[in-house]
Design a protein around this nucleic acid. Sequence first.
DNA 1: AATTCCATTTTGTGTAGACTTTATCTTTTT
DNA 2: AAAAAGATAAAGTCTACACAAAATGGAATT
Lengths: 234, 234
Amino acid sequence: MTQTSDTTSYKDIKQTVLHRIRSGELQPDTLLPNEQKLAVEFSCTRTTVNRALRELADEGFLERRRKAGTRVLSAPQRQARFTIPLVRDEVEALGGTYRYALVSHETQNAPDWLAARLSLRPDQSVMHVRCMHFSGNTPFQFEDRWIVIDSVPQVEQADFSSIGPNDWLVQTVPFTNVELTFLASRADASLAGFLDVTEGEPVFTAERITWLQGQPVTFAKMYFAAGYRMTTEF
Amino acid sequence: MTQTSDTTSYKDIKQTVLHRIRSGELQPDTLLPNEQKLAVEFSCTRTTVNRALRELADEGFLERRRKAGTRVLSAPQRQARFTIPLVRDEVEALGGTYRYALVSHETQNAPDWLAARLSLRPDQSVMHVRCMHFSGNTPFQFEDRWIVIDSVPQVEQADFSSIGPNDWLVQTVPFTNVELTFLASRADASLAGFLDVTEGEPVFTAERITWLQGQPVTFAKMYFAAGYRMTTEF
DNA sequence: AATTCCATTTTGTGTAGACTTTATCTTTTT
DNA sequence: AAAAAGATAAAGTCTACACAAAATGGAATT
């Protein structure tokens, strides 16, 4: 179907099975025929069927268990996949010109709440960086970030006046584990000033904790300008 | 490594390659050896290497192009996977007792903004349902939903006094396409009453548009109680 | 100098078959 | 009846090989 070729591809099978689910031909909780039988039906090998069903299971449509078989999930575990863009990319994708400005940075002992959050010893020192991201001259995001110096000692040589701490970290410790949280917070006087909104306004906020092989690397709060919407399709 | 067997599995290869990336042995933008060579290195077939690299590319670590080869992504396209839970499950996972209450429902012509949003004809009628989700006696979420009757005619027989519109829709048209948006909004007087917060407070809000094979099915705004946090790890 | 064309390399995907792992079901034993 | 043991079915994964598709880099042509 998809290609001009005459063989049945795993993509064809995915599409067909998905169609059967959506049309109601395959009811939720129904058991599918086993791979062997589907292979006969689609006149292809079991390998091909396996890949199709495996991917559909990955995508949250099916549940597969050895010996038990493959069944249609009744409450589809649909998963949204957010691709978290870098601020620069996001601004540019929206047609703006990206501009970065450092607000402040200083090294200090980890405040208690941060030490607790990241499981730091109370004496560990962190670099506190605050900065702004603009789209043209419009505030886009205010970033409030702490970086654990023991985890990234090079940070003491970093020059955050020209490069944002996020960009710097992505370049320096690119592959990390992340805990991401979205919430709505309230603009206090200071934040209202940075984002050019009225004090008390709702602000879409993302918190991000980053770990490198079990070591806490950074905690960031990102406050987005009024009207910001984080959207995804799936 | 993972198993007791003596063959190299695609999981071993994934782990090894990922480790080489994290440790800096494979720098961003570096080209990996081709599948043939890796197969020799890991003494397995190219098929096995292919699966490992394909999955790592899926997960956003690598970029693969025919003829060009496989390279480490410099700005890892890490994707957050949010599993969107049903409200009931979410409340129960947090240790609460789920309770549902219908606030209002009525059939009407689609308001202009909704017709525009969902590409409806101005005369198409929709069912407007408002309801509350509680954790014990604490407000958890206020749901404001429109359902396109032409797309789901059965909705006219549905009894939303006992079952939530989301649960009903999941049962009725389980497999759909979704556009999901997160934002921060401001509690107006009515919403403040429902969620038991002060008027003007920030409210974490999710909007969800659902399509069934190109047909708009439903638009929902979900307003979460104060302090709500949507978290994911990846 | 630019463009078109083509060979080659690399990933993408299919076939055929084997062995492995796990969970379920059945049977047997307690 | 309950618990333990064993048979078996289904998915999971690997090997070995083949051909397809894409895109790149260089050669040929304009």
